[in-house]
Amino acid sequence: MARTGGAIRGWARGGEAGLVILSAGLAGCSAQSPAILAPVSPKGRAEAELFWFILAITAFVFVVVEALLLYAVIRFRARDPQAIPPQIHGNRALEVSWTTVTALGLAVIFAMTWRTMAATSTPPAEAIPVKVIGHQWWWEFQYPTLGITTANELVIPVGRPIRLTVTAADVIHSFWVPQLGGKMDAIPGRENLLWLQADVEGTYYGQCAELCGASHANMRLRVRVVSDSEFQRWVEAQRAPAAQPVEPLAQKGYQVFMSKACVGCHTIDGTPARGKVGPNLTHVGSRTTIAAGLLENTPENLARWLDNPPAVKPGSLMPRLGLTPEEIQALVAYLSSLK
């Protein structure tokens, strides 16, 4: 009996050590990652709290069950190969108790789940509406009340609720920015609602979470959470028509853009470019990334993209256009000027 107690205490200590390692692992991965356990939104926090609650229960069950199993396996190893233990067929009282305890534990987890669902599903009173449209393989963001259309970078003011209407243009995608809360599928023909609110300024990483074809891995996005005043400035800038090219190289780029296939797919407000297939480029120069968040928005990367899009983003609907290096340089100058 004493030996049994000692062994159980030993396993319990092992379990504590395991929990410490587990917590360290969880904390470690949140340092630099878009971690769901480093939320910056009320919804994300509620989800993380429920996670920790369930983890506490499951970690306890894990330690107890694994300890019992290990103990049984070690303690009851046959020393005499001929030994025949007492033949126990069951124990009604024991079986009823562990069934009841399990059911009660699950009821508690479900109650907490229900509570969190109720708390996170209440729509905020005043929210900025944004339409999110998933495309193969980029994100379109429309601000219907502000008259803005942009791509791959959602800019929102800090502390203000945003009402996202999530849908898709082709196949199913899933909109997900881990630190701002759970994902919502973007399904063609359906409009799903998702509330978003960020409490800390910064840039948050996200990406498509539903297999959507060859470049599913390359369908990334950023949410830039900015102060109210910065948001106002951003809105003003975005609502302005596209900048007229000033420099000669940029002017040449304008000519290239308007005479090549570009216009068939892209819109630049205030120009003849009215295509709707690809991202709106009216203010592409103001975005921090290009190619659905794959590359930093630098002249070198832009040139690389224009030269051979499918090499950057496999399966890309934008084909290799066979542009000359001169044309690419001119286009880079023009597109970069579209702040």
């Binding site: 769901i36 994300g44 509620a46 989800e47 993380a48 429920l50 996670f51 369930i54 983890l55 499951t58 987890i109 479900f110 907490m112 789940t113 969190t116 669902m117 996170t120 899933s174 997900w176 881990p178 809360g181 759970g182 994902k183 919502m184 979470a209 539903e210």
Partner: peptide, 13 residues
């Protein structure tokens, strides 16, 4: 964790 809807929204997929 996957049965708990709000956690699932985060960890699914």
């Amino acid at each position: 964790f996957l049965a708990a809807v709000p956690v699932d929204w985060q960890v699914t997929d």
